[in-house]
Design a protein around this nucleic acid. Structure first.
Length: 271
DNA sequence: AAGTGGACCTGCTAGC
DNA sequence: TGCTAGCAGGTCCACT
């Protein structure tokens, strides 16, 4: 589910309200991807600081460390002052005086992990190796071109890797490549500098538009207020195999790369 | 170093 | 109507 826009929309929807709140209880459901890494009791009485995002991870700082959270494929966070009784897919509650932050995640690929600091322990390990932020000034066509020079994998696969630029998952990688007019099967090291400039711009534009739309809701994504996203309605290739390309009218195709579905227009996306 | 495939887990849908 | 195969927004890890 959640790619960078969904994670950022989620962050914006509860960060201000939870900041400064004291943790009064922690409730764990079924195991998530990794163990919490601390006794829940150790978190109680700590205060929540400003929530930040790195790639698709959220960092929730506490007085003596913090929690690194990931929504996996099917996770979402809610923040409510009077939460319902936990359901079968509610696997983490951070109860505070201001409300309860709850991770709901049917597939349990998500995670909540304690670390003494964002650059220490488990957090450091998980965040190491992430690429640049797409909205950072360091993310340029030149950066992309330099990184892609040593890669022979298809550009779609390279974008999804997250070690060059973070944030574009399967939907937005497909959409950005469409935006840039690049065939997703193009070998990374064959992309010219000019096309890398176009791609960097397309990634920013695509993620930016999704952010403005509140993210994409394919199945169950909601922000912490329970609001669904709307970007999926403006997706131009993702999930549209067999339909006409909105730009050139050719039939959109579906293929598989690295065990993930890829959607593209054979008419206006070139190698 | 870079690339590949498998692993994690559950729910929904299309098709028989 | 009921069962089953296939698919889903991520990413870590082991292995070549």
């Amino acid at each position: 589910m959640p790619e960078l826009p969904e994670v950022e929309v989620t962050r914006l929807s509860f960060a201000e309200r939870i900041q400064g709140a004291e943790v009064t209880a922690v409730r764990l459901g079924k195991p998530l991807r990794w163990p919490l890494g601390v006794e829940p009791q150790q978190i109680v009485t700590q205060r929540v600081g400003p929530v930040t995002r790195r790639g698709k991870y959220l960092w929730l700082p506490l007085d003596r460390g913090g929690l690194l959270m990931h929504l996996g494929m099917s996770g979402s966070l809610s923040f409510a002052s009077a939460p319902a009784a936990p359901g079968p897919h509610d696997h983490f509650d951070l109860v505070t005086a201001r409300g309860t932050l709850r991770l709901t995640d049917p597939r349990r690929f998500g995670a909540v992990v304690w670390a003494p600091a964002i650059d220490a322990g488990a957090a450091a390990k998980l965040l190491a190796g992430l690429g640049v932020e797409p909205f950072d000034s360091a993310f340029t066509g030149a950066h992309l071109h330099k990184a892609l020079r040593r890669r022979r994998v298809a550009i779609k696969t390279a974008l999804l890797g997250g070690d060059i630029v973070v944030g574009a998952g399967n939907i937005y990688a497909c959409e950005a490549l469409f935006e840039a007019g690049i065939d997703p099967r193009t070998r990374s090291d064959r992309l010219s500098r000019v096309r890398c400039e176009a791609l960097a711009e397309a990634v920013r534009k695509t993620l930016g538009r999704a952010l403005e739309s509140g993210g994409s809701t394919l199945r169950n994504f909601r922000d912490a207020h329970g609001i669904a996203g709307a970007f999926q309605l403006q997706a131009r290739v993702y999930g549209r195999a067999g339909q006409a390309c909105p730009r050139c009218g050719a039939t959109i195709r579906r293929t598989v790369q690295g065990q993930r579905a890829t959607f593209f227009c054979p008419g206006c996306q070139r190698r």
